[in-house]
Design a protein around this nucleic acid. Structure first.
Lengths: 212, 212
DNA sequence: ACATTAATTGTACGATTGTGCAATAAAAGT
DNA sequence: ACTTTTATTGCACAATCGTACAATTAATGT
C-alpha cells in the first residue's frame, strides 16, 4: 500500500543538549511557579519529555538542581559583567555599561529574583550548593575588583588591597540593593532613573566625576 | 495506696500563646532547615506538640505560613526602625542607630535571610502573600521617609516629594545591599566596618556631614 | 463531686513525591 | 537488512505530604 511515513514517537537528542533543555526547563518552572513546584514531573512536562528521562541524564534530582543553580548564576554573572574587560573602551563607559546591564532585564527582573531566592535558601543546608555559591560569588568579585582598582588609580586615590576591597564591597552592595528593589518592585522607579541612581552612587563612592 | 501524683500528658495552652508558639517554631524550622523542611510534622515536633494540633489553631498549613511571614516581617521592621521616632535624640544619632540596628544580628544574619528568601519566593504565586509583602514594605517606607525628609531640610536641600522618594530609595538600596552581603557572608567584613560603610554612604547620599 | 468545654492526641486516608527497573524504539554501525 | 547501542518511555513502589475525624483529657464552672 502506501509507504506509511509513520512519524517517530520521540527524538533521540544529543545528551549534552538534552541536559541543557532540562536545566532550562527547570529554571522556567522555578521562575513561574517556585521551587516547590519544580518536581521531576512538572519539569519534564515543561521540557516535553517523560519524567523518567530526567534520571537518565541526572543521577538524582539534586544533581539537576545543582546544575540549574550553576547555570543560572554563571548566566547572570556573564550578562552583568560581559563588558568589564573590554579594554578598548574608557573606564567610565565600561563601568556604566556593567551597571546598566546589571540593572536591566533579564538580570534585574522578578523571575531572576525568584530563581535566586529559591536556590539561596538551599545553600546553607547543602555542601555542593555552598561551593557553587562561593565559586560564582568569587568569580563575580574577581571580575569587578580590577575595575574598581583602575578607577581608584585613575583618580590618584590610594589603591591598597584593603581600600579596593572596601570600595568593591560598597559598590557591590549598592548594585545588590538596587537589583533587589528593581526586581521586587519594577514599577517603583522607572528603569533609567534606577540606573542613573546607581551610576551616581557608585561614581561617588569611587571618587569619579559624575556627569552633572 | 499513694495518691499517685500522675503528671498530665499535656498542658492546655491559651490559644493565642499556642498560636505564637507554633509560629515561632515554624520560623525556627525554616531558618534551620529551609521551607521545604517546614512540614506540619517537623514544625509540631519543634513546638513539642502533636502534628494534628496545628490544624486546630490554623485552618490550613497555608494560614500558618501567612501568619509566620507577617510575624517575621513585622519583627524585622520593628528591630530595624524602633528608634526612628525617638524625637528626644538628634537626627544623626537616630539615623546611625537605625543603620546599626538594621545591620546587626538578628536582622542582618543568615537565619533571617533564609526565612526571608523562603517567603519571598512564595509572594508572586499567592495573593495573600502579596498583600503581606506590600503591607510590610509600605510600613517600612512610611517610617523611614520622615527621617530622610528631616535630614534633607536640616541641610537646606530641596525636600520635594520626588526628591525625598529618590533619596529614600537610594538609602534603602544601600541598606538592603549591605544587609544582603552581611547576612550571606558574615566573615567578609567585620561588623563595625559594615556599619561604618553604611553610615558613610547614607550620610553622603543625604548630604549630611560625615564624622571624619 | 460532677458535667461541660475545647485543647490535644492518635490514627487513617488519598495525593504526590523521588526513585528503580524492564520494555521500547530511534539512530548508528556493519 | 541486520545487529548493537542507548536515549526514551511506562509503570510500580515506598516514603512523605496535608488533611480529616473520632477518641482522649486537662481545665473550668457549678
Amino acid at each position: 500500500m502506501n509507504a506509511a511515513p509513520k512519524e517517530p514517537k520521540f527524538r533521540r537528542e544529543n545528551p549534552e543538549q538534552r541536559r541543557e533543555q532540562l536545566i532550562e526547563a527547570t529554571l522556567r518552572v522555578i521562575a513561574r511557579k517556585g521551587v516547590s513546584a519544580a518536581t521531576v514531573r512538572e519539569i519534564s512536562a515543561e521540557a516535553g519529555v517523560a519524567f523518567s528521562l530526567i534520571r537518565h541524564h541526572f543521577r538524582t534530582k539534586e544533581d539537576l538542581m545543582y546544575a540549574a543553580y550553576a547555570h543560572h548564576m554563571q548566566n547572570m554573572a556573564h550578562l552583568s559583567l560581559s563588558s568589564a574587560g573590554d579594554i578598548s573602551r574608557p573606564l567610565p563607559d565600561r563601568l556604566r555599561q556593567c551597571i546598566r546591564d546589571t540593572l536591566s532585564a533579564p538580570v534585574t527582573n522578578g523571575e531572576s529574583l525568584q530563581i535566586w531566592a529559591g536556590f539561596i535558601q538551599m545553600v546553607p543546608h547543602d555542601d555542593r550548593m555552598k561551593q557553587i555559591h562561593s565559586d560564582t560569588y568569587l568569580g563575580f568579585r574577581n571580575t569587578l575588583e580590577p575595575l574598581i582598582r583602575e578607577a581608584l588609580v585613575s583618580q590618584g586615590s590610594p589603591a591598597t588591597p584593603a581600600e579596593v576591597e572596601a570600595k568593591a564591597i560598597a559598590c557591590n552592595a549598592v548594585l545588590d540593593g538596587l537589583w533587589l528593589e528593581g526586581s521586587m518592585l519594577p514599577d517603583m522607579l522607572p528603569h533609567d532613573r534606577l540606573t542613573a541612581l546607581a551610576e551616581e552612587t557608585v561614581f561617588r563612592i569611587l571618587g569619579l566625576p559624575t556627569s552633572v
